[in-house]
């Protein structure tokens, strides 16, 4: 299932420190266009820190990140969003006071151009844009099968649906690279299956490159084209799920190894 495309995102020798804590040390990997790339590792391995570096929440002290051929050391999250990187969070980061529709509409934020006056009068572009983008948003809503909760404030939705709305918001931005931080955490089997289906069809139908963090090994091995394993901020292994599964270092990191 591996479809080697061009390199979309290249992470080179990233090191990130918080004071004396080394969250990441010399981590390098490439994410190719069109693949599903998984980052796994035990708790505290630096997986989320890695995603935070990619979309600009953290600024690594060393190393470079190259996205679509443009190299950069530091950027703000909104700049990453403008370049086509969307993400979801481990603990849902939705706008609780807004409806599902409004939340997903915020995903279109960067594509809207109406001036303040046009918005204030809801006229010309102000009105036209709202309707055009609503159509796009409805496509995403259909895609993720959340039509029935369109007008519900997301604070009232159950956990599994909130995760789905968050994915919808990320997809509404039509990202080139989608970062998913534990999309299946805390879900039951059915919800996981649904979410897997959505992740796969996002990848297949929309052609979005996906980088995901996940603890459910069954999910990771089934979904991903390639996997990188982190432990204590260092890269342990990288390769196809089968290669990684057979790697002795990975087995040791997960199962523990006796030091006698």
């Amino acid at each position: 299932m591996t479809r080697p495309g061009d390199i979309l995102l290249s992470v080179k020798e990233i090191s990130l420190r918080f004071g004396g804590v080394r969250a990441l040390t010399d981590v390098s990997f490439d994410i190719h266009e069109g693949e599903i790339f998984a980052i796994i590792g035990p708790n505290g391995a630096g997986k989320s820190s890695m995603l935070n570096c990619i979309n600009g929440f953290y600024h690594p002290q060393e190393g470079t990140i190259t996205f679509k051929g443009a190299e950069r050391r530091q950027m703000r999250p909104h700049e990453a969003a403008a370049q086509g990187i969307s993400r979801t969070f481990q603990n849902i980061a939705l706008f609780k006071g807004m409806t599902t529709l409004e939340n997903v509409m915020t995903g279109r934020m960067l594509k809207m151009r109406a001036t303040l006056a046009e918005q204030a009068l809801y006229f010309w572009r102000g009105r036209r844009e709202e309707i055009e983008h609503r159509e796009k948003v409805e496509e995403v809503i259909d895609f993720l099968e959340i039509q029935s909760i369109r007008k519900t404030p997301v604070g009232r939705l159950p956990y599994g649906l909130q995760k789905r709305v968050e994915l919808a918001r990320a997809l509404a931005a039509e990202p080139e690279l989608l970062l998913l931080d534990e999309p299946m955490a805390g879900m039951n089997v059915e919800e996981k299956e649904d979410m897997c289906r959505f992740v796969l069809s996002t990848n297949h139908e929309l052609g979005t490159t996906i980088a995901l963090i996940e603890h459910d090994m069954g999910v990771v091995m089934d979904l991903s084209d390639r996997v990188v394993v982190l432990d204590y901020g260092k890269k342990l292994a990288e390769g196809t799920p089968d290669e990684v599964r057979g790697n002795q270092d990975v087995i040791d990191a997960y199962l523990g190894v006796s030091h006698d």
């Binding site: 969003a81 980061a93 939705l94 706008f95 609780k96 006071g97 915020t106 918005q119 102000g126």
Partner: peptide, 23 residues
């Protein structure tokens, strides 16, 4: 009900996520 209103509410509800969508 326009973009600017949604960006205000996004900042109100969760400013980190708001930055993430490009606000």
């Amino acid at each position: 009900r326009s973009r600017i209103g949604r960006s205000w509410m996004a900042i109100r509800d969760m400013d980190i996520a708001a930055e993430l969508v490009g606000i």
